[in-house]
């Protein structure tokens, strides 16, 4: 099963909408709740990152009997130094993002913590793609 969602940068009223719909689908498929929680925590963090940092993005989720594969591709400023971005506590988030309860430099490390396999590709001035995978 393939699901696709568009995410608009800067629109915090809708942030989490895609994650919520994917969560409902995973629950309907009777996937182990512990895996569902790890998937949606990573997915929600990544969705908030698109809203917080990018202009727009597309989230795709592939679900099959072997696992879940998430791809979050955004058009945005990109990440100049991925290693630095992965450092707990490092953040470039705006004041608005911090007021929403995010932007403490915990997102990417928490995605990594909750993923079976996590990879970032980024090009400055173009955008960032996250691959987050789970095996059942």
């Amino acid at each position: 099963m393939n699901l696709e969602f568009k995410v608009e940068g800067g629109d915090f009223t809708l942030a989490g909408n895609a994650s919520s719909q994917i969560k409902k689908m995973l629950k309907q498929l009777n996937i182990d709740p512990k895996i569902v929680k790890r998937v949606v925590i990573a997915l929600y963090e990544a969705e908030v990152n698109i809203v917080a940092h990018a202009y727009r993005g597309i989230i795709t989720a592939e679900i099959d009997p072997h696992g879940v594969r998430l791809k979050l591709e955004d058009e945005g400023p990109g990440i100049p130094d991925i290693e630095k971005a992965m450092t707990p506590g490092f953040s470039t988030a705006s004041e608005q993002v911090r007021e929403m309860g995010f932007g403490a430099g915990m997102g990417l490390p928490n995605i990594s913590e909750n993923a079976d396999d996590f990879r970032i590709e980024s090009e400055v001035g173009k955008g960032t793609t996250l691959y987050i995978n789970y095996n059942f």
């Binding site: 915090f12 009223t13 942030a15 989490g16 994650s19 919520s20 709740p33 929680k37 925590i41 929600y44 963090e45 908030v48 929403m100 309860g101 995010f102 932007g103 403490a104 915990m106 997102g107 928490n110 913590e113």
Partner: peptide
């Protein structure tokens, strides 16, 4: 800090917060 809440591994706890916005619900 919702980022901190998202690191909690336990489910079925009560979240006590002063952050009244949609992201607290999410």
């Amino acid at each position: 800090l919702m980022s901190d809440v998202l690191t909690v591994k336990t489910s079925e706890f009560i979240l006590i917060t002063g952050l009244a916005n949609l992201q607290a619900i999410r």
